[in-house]
Nucleic acid binder design. Structure first.
Lengths: 117, 117
DNA sequence: TTTATATATCGTAATATTGCAATATTAAAA
DNA sequence: TTTTAATATTGCAATATTACGATATATAAA
Protein backbone atom coordinates (compact mmCIF):
# COMPACT_ATOMS: atom_id res chain seq x y z
CA UNK A 1 0.00 0.00 0.00
CA UNK A 2 2.47 2.64 1.12
CA UNK A 3 -0.06 5.13 2.47
CA UNK A 4 -0.57 5.45 6.22
CA UNK A 5 -4.06 4.77 7.50
CA UNK A 6 -4.31 8.14 9.21
CA UNK A 7 -8.10 7.99 9.43
CA UNK A 8 -7.84 5.27 12.07
CA UNK A 9 -5.86 7.40 14.47
CA UNK A 10 -6.55 10.47 16.57
CA UNK A 11 -5.85 14.02 15.44
CA UNK A 12 -3.20 14.20 18.10
CA UNK A 13 -1.45 10.99 17.10
CA UNK A 14 -1.39 12.14 13.48
CA UNK A 15 -0.14 15.59 14.44
CA UNK A 16 2.76 14.28 16.51
CA UNK A 17 3.64 11.67 13.89
CA UNK A 18 3.72 14.41 11.26
CA UNK A 19 6.10 16.54 13.31
CA UNK A 20 8.31 13.55 14.10
CA UNK A 21 8.33 12.47 10.47
CA UNK A 22 9.48 15.93 9.41
CA UNK A 23 12.39 15.51 11.79
CA UNK A 24 13.12 12.02 10.52
CA UNK A 25 15.93 12.96 8.17
CA UNK A 26 19.49 14.00 9.08
CA UNK A 27 19.46 16.91 6.61
CA UNK A 28 16.37 18.33 8.27
CA UNK A 29 17.92 17.91 11.71
CA UNK A 30 20.99 19.73 10.38
CA UNK A 31 18.80 22.56 9.09
CA UNK A 32 17.02 22.89 12.43
CA UNK A 33 20.32 22.86 14.32
CA UNK A 34 21.70 25.52 12.02
CA UNK A 35 18.70 27.80 12.45
CA UNK A 36 18.79 27.36 16.20
CA UNK A 37 22.53 27.88 16.45
CA UNK A 38 22.42 31.13 14.54
CA UNK A 39 19.75 32.46 16.93
CA UNK A 40 18.21 34.53 14.19
CA UNK A 41 16.55 34.29 10.84
CA UNK A 42 18.76 33.15 8.04
CA UNK A 43 18.17 35.16 4.93
CA UNK A 44 19.79 33.07 2.25
CA UNK A 45 22.51 30.50 1.88
CA UNK A 46 21.32 27.57 3.88
CA UNK A 47 22.33 25.75 0.70
CA UNK A 48 26.04 26.41 1.31
CA UNK A 49 25.79 24.87 4.77
CA UNK A 50 24.66 21.46 3.62
CA UNK A 51 26.20 18.77 1.43
CA UNK A 52 23.19 18.49 -0.82
CA UNK A 53 22.09 20.05 -4.08
CA UNK A 54 19.96 23.17 -4.03
CA UNK A 55 16.69 21.56 -5.20
CA UNK A 56 17.04 18.89 -2.52
CA UNK A 57 17.48 21.44 0.25
CA UNK A 58 14.60 23.49 -1.09
CA UNK A 59 12.48 20.37 -0.80
CA UNK A 60 13.57 19.69 2.79
CA UNK A 61 12.86 23.30 3.74
CA UNK A 62 9.40 22.97 2.26
CA UNK A 63 8.72 19.88 4.36
CA UNK A 64 9.86 21.55 7.55
CA UNK A 65 7.66 24.52 6.70
CA UNK A 66 4.63 22.33 5.98
CA UNK A 67 5.09 20.53 9.26
CA UNK A 68 5.15 23.86 11.07
CA UNK A 69 8.69 23.56 12.37
CA UNK A 70 10.12 26.55 10.50
CA UNK A 71 8.83 29.74 8.95
CA UNK A 72 9.94 31.41 5.73
CA UNK A 73 9.41 34.94 4.50
CA UNK A 74 10.42 36.50 1.24
CA UNK A 75 13.04 39.19 1.79
CA UNK A 76 13.65 40.71 -1.57
CA UNK A 77 15.97 38.44 -3.46
CA UNK A 78 16.37 35.93 -0.64
CA UNK A 79 14.16 34.00 1.74
CA UNK A 80 14.34 34.43 5.49
CA UNK A 81 14.03 31.19 7.37
CA UNK A 82 13.69 30.75 11.09
CA UNK A 83 12.37 28.38 13.72
CA UNK A 84 8.62 28.22 14.22
CA UNK A 85 8.34 28.27 18.00
CA UNK A 86 4.75 27.05 17.86
CA UNK A 87 5.57 23.74 16.18
CA UNK A 88 8.47 23.18 18.50
CA UNK A 89 6.31 23.87 21.50
CA UNK A 90 3.84 21.23 20.36
CA UNK A 91 6.34 18.43 20.00
CA UNK A 92 8.20 19.51 23.14
CA UNK A 93 5.00 19.36 25.17
CA UNK A 94 4.31 15.92 23.78
CA UNK A 95 7.69 14.69 24.97
CA UNK A 96 7.28 16.22 28.38
CA UNK A 97 3.92 14.51 28.73
CA UNK A 98 5.36 11.21 27.52
CA UNK A 99 8.41 11.27 29.72
CA UNK A 100 6.53 12.31 32.82
CA UNK A 101 4.38 9.24 32.29
CA UNK A 102 7.38 7.00 31.82
CA UNK A 103 9.23 7.85 35.02
CA UNK A 104 7.65 5.12 37.13
CA UNK A 105 9.64 1.97 37.74
CA UNK A 106 8.25 -0.22 35.03
CA UNK A 107 9.91 -3.50 35.87
CA UNK A 108 8.47 -3.62 39.38
CA UNK A 109 4.97 -3.96 37.96
CA UNK A 110 5.86 -6.93 35.78
CA UNK A 111 5.55 -10.55 36.76
CA UNK A 112 8.30 -10.99 39.37
CA UNK A 113 8.90 -14.58 38.29
CA UNK A 114 10.30 -13.58 34.99
CA UNK A 115 13.02 -11.31 33.70
CA UNK A 116 10.65 -8.85 32.08
CA UNK A 117 12.25 -6.36 29.69
CA UNK B 1 17.30 8.11 -5.32
CA UNK B 2 15.30 7.27 -2.22
CA UNK B 3 18.23 6.57 0.08
CA UNK B 4 19.27 9.23 2.56
CA UNK B 5 22.87 10.42 2.31
CA UNK B 6 23.60 9.57 5.94
CA UNK B 7 27.36 9.59 5.38
CA UNK B 8 27.29 13.37 4.95
CA UNK B 9 25.85 14.00 8.39
CA UNK B 10 27.06 13.63 11.95
CA UNK B 11 26.45 10.54 14.09
CA UNK B 12 24.26 12.66 16.28
CA UNK B 13 22.16 14.03 13.45
CA UNK B 14 21.64 10.53 12.09
CA UNK B 15 20.79 9.18 15.55
CA UNK B 16 18.15 11.81 16.26
CA UNK B 17 16.71 11.50 12.77
CA UNK B 18 16.43 7.75 13.25
CA UNK B 19 14.54 8.15 16.52
CA UNK B 20 12.27 10.81 15.04
CA UNK B 21 11.63 8.71 11.96
CA UNK B 22 10.58 5.78 14.14
CA UNK B 23 8.03 8.09 15.73
CA UNK B 24 6.88 9.36 12.35
CA UNK B 25 3.82 7.15 12.07
CA UNK B 26 0.52 7.46 13.96
CA UNK B 27 0.40 3.72 14.67
CA UNK B 28 3.79 3.86 16.33
CA UNK B 29 2.75 6.90 18.36
CA UNK B 30 -0.34 4.94 19.41
CA UNK B 31 1.82 1.99 20.48
CA UNK B 32 4.11 4.24 22.53
CA UNK B 33 1.13 5.95 24.16
CA UNK B 34 -0.40 2.60 24.99
CA UNK B 35 2.79 1.27 26.57
CA UNK B 36 3.26 4.45 28.57
CA UNK B 37 -0.37 4.59 29.68
CA UNK B 38 -0.31 1.05 31.02
CA UNK B 39 2.80 1.86 33.11
CA UNK B 40 4.03 -1.68 32.78
CA UNK B 41 5.14 -4.23 30.28
CA UNK B 42 2.41 -5.48 27.97
CA UNK B 43 2.66 -9.21 27.52
CA UNK B 44 0.52 -9.81 24.47
CA UNK B 45 -2.40 -8.23 22.68
CA UNK B 46 -1.13 -4.95 21.46
CA UNK B 47 -2.75 -6.18 18.26
CA UNK B 48 -6.25 -5.83 19.69
CA UNK B 49 -5.57 -2.22 20.61
CA UNK B 50 -4.88 -1.04 17.08
CA UNK B 51 -6.91 -0.93 13.87
CA UNK B 52 -4.27 -2.69 11.81
CA UNK B 53 -3.59 -6.29 10.83
CA UNK B 54 -1.28 -8.41 12.98
CA UNK B 55 1.66 -8.52 10.53
CA UNK B 56 1.54 -4.75 10.15
CA UNK B 57 1.70 -4.19 13.90
CA UNK B 58 4.49 -6.73 14.23
CA UNK B 59 6.40 -4.69 11.67
CA UNK B 60 5.81 -1.41 13.53
CA UNK B 61 6.92 -3.01 16.81
CA UNK B 62 10.09 -4.18 15.12
CA UNK B 63 10.86 -0.67 13.93
CA UNK B 64 10.33 0.81 17.37
CA UNK B 65 12.57 -1.89 18.80
CA UNK B 66 15.30 -1.29 16.21
CA UNK B 67 15.21 2.43 16.93
CA UNK B 68 15.66 1.69 20.63
CA UNK B 69 12.34 3.14 21.75
CA UNK B 70 10.86 -0.09 23.09
CA UNK B 71 12.11 -3.41 24.41
CA UNK B 72 10.63 -6.85 23.87
CA UNK B 73 11.15 -10.11 25.74
CA UNK B 74 9.72 -13.52 25.10
CA UNK B 75 7.38 -14.57 27.92
CA UNK B 76 6.25 -18.08 27.12
CA UNK B 77 3.51 -17.84 24.57
CA UNK B 78 3.52 -14.05 24.39
CA UNK B 79 5.99 -11.23 24.02
CA UNK B 80 6.46 -8.60 26.72
CA UNK B 81 6.83 -5.12 25.33
CA UNK B 82 7.73 -2.02 27.24
CA UNK B 83 9.28 1.40 26.85
CA UNK B 84 13.05 1.60 26.48
CA UNK B 85 13.88 4.46 28.80
CA UNK B 86 17.31 4.89 27.24
CA UNK B 87 16.02 5.75 23.76
CA UNK B 88 13.48 8.10 25.21
CA UNK B 89 16.12 9.81 27.28
CA UNK B 90 18.19 10.44 24.16
CA UNK B 91 15.47 12.13 22.17
CA UNK B 92 14.20 13.98 25.24
CA UNK B 93 17.67 15.41 25.88
CA UNK B 94 17.86 16.47 22.26
CA UNK B 95 14.63 18.42 22.57
CA UNK B 96 15.70 20.03 25.82
CA UNK B 97 18.93 21.13 24.16
CA UNK B 98 17.10 22.41 21.12
CA UNK B 99 14.43 24.29 22.99
CA UNK B 100 16.87 25.88 25.41
CA UNK B 101 18.66 27.28 22.39
CA UNK B 102 15.47 28.55 20.83
CA UNK B 103 14.24 30.61 23.78
CA UNK B 104 15.91 33.87 22.73
CA UNK B 105 13.80 36.48 21.00
CA UNK B 106 14.53 35.64 17.41
CA UNK B 107 12.77 38.51 15.70
CA UNK B 108 14.77 41.16 17.55
CA UNK B 109 17.93 39.99 15.84
CA UNK B 110 16.49 40.30 12.35
CA UNK B 111 16.71 43.29 10.12
CA UNK B 112 14.38 45.81 11.79
CA UNK B 113 13.35 47.26 8.43
CA UNK B 114 11.50 44.17 7.40
CA UNK B 115 8.79 41.97 8.81
CA UNK B 116 11.04 38.99 9.27
CA UNK B 117 9.25 35.70 9.97
C1' DT C 1 0.72 -35.76 20.13
C1' DT C 2 -2.70 -32.70 18.40
C1' DT C 3 -4.75 -28.31 18.62
C1' DA C 4 -5.02 -23.55 19.70
C1' DT C 5 -2.87 -19.09 20.36
C1' DA C 6 0.54 -15.47 19.75
C1' DT C 7 3.92 -13.51 17.14
C1' DA C 8 7.29 -13.28 13.22
C1' DT C 9 8.63 -13.62 8.45
C1' DC C 10 7.96 -13.69 3.43
C1' DG C 11 6.24 -11.97 -0.70
C1' DT C 12 4.14 -8.46 -2.99
C1' DA C 13 1.33 -4.39 -4.47
C1' DA C 14 0.57 0.48 -3.77
C1' DT C 15 2.46 4.56 -2.52
C1' DA C 16 6.01 7.81 -0.52
C1' DT C 17 10.60 9.63 -0.09
C1' DT C 18 15.07 11.09 -1.62
C1' DG C 19 18.09 13.31 -4.73
C1' DC C 20 19.22 15.87 -8.61
C1' DA C 21 19.40 17.87 -13.49
C1' DA C 22 16.86 20.95 -16.06
C1' DT C 23 14.10 24.69 -15.98
C1' DA C 24 11.08 28.36 -14.13
C1' DT C 25 10.38 32.30 -11.27
C1' DT C 26 11.41 36.49 -9.08
C1' DA C 27 13.69 40.45 -7.62
C1' DA C 28 18.00 43.05 -7.28
C1' DA C 29 21.89 44.97 -9.84
C1' DA C 30 24.04 46.71 -13.84
C1' DT D 1 16.04 46.27 -20.30
C1' DT D 2 19.42 42.77 -19.69
C1' DT D 3 21.99 40.21 -16.52
C1' DT D 4 22.83 38.08 -12.23
C1' DA D 5 21.59 35.67 -8.07
C1' DA D 6 18.53 33.09 -5.06
C1' DT D 7 15.04 30.00 -4.57
C1' DA D 8 11.14 27.05 -6.35
C1' DT D 9 9.10 23.67 -9.40
C1' DT D 10 9.05 19.82 -12.59
C1' DG D 11 10.19 15.35 -14.03
C1' DC D 12 12.24 11.26 -13.19
C1' DA D 13 15.02 7.27 -11.41
C1' DA D 14 16.31 4.70 -7.30
C1' DT D 15 14.94 3.24 -3.08
C1' DA D 16 12.00 3.01 1.20
C1' DT D 17 7.66 2.54 3.57
C1' DT D 18 3.14 0.77 4.44
C1' DA D 19 -0.15 -2.78 4.61
C1' DC D 20 -1.65 -7.35 4.47
C1' DG D 21 -2.49 -12.36 2.97
C1' DA D 22 -0.19 -16.51 3.39
C1' DT D 23 2.74 -19.03 5.94
C1' DA D 24 6.18 -20.22 9.46
C1' DT D 25 7.47 -20.72 14.25
C1' DA D 26 7.05 -21.59 18.95
C1' DT D 27 4.85 -22.25 23.22
C1' DA D 28 0.71 -23.55 25.97
C1' DA D 29 -3.31 -26.25 26.49
C1' DA D 30 -6.04 -30.26 25.70
Amino acid sequence: MGASKTEHFTEYQNQIALLAKAMGHPARIAILEFLLKSKSCICGDIVNELPLAQPTISQHLKELKNAGLIKGNIEGNAICYCINEEGFEKIKTFFETLTSKSNSNLSSECNPNETCC
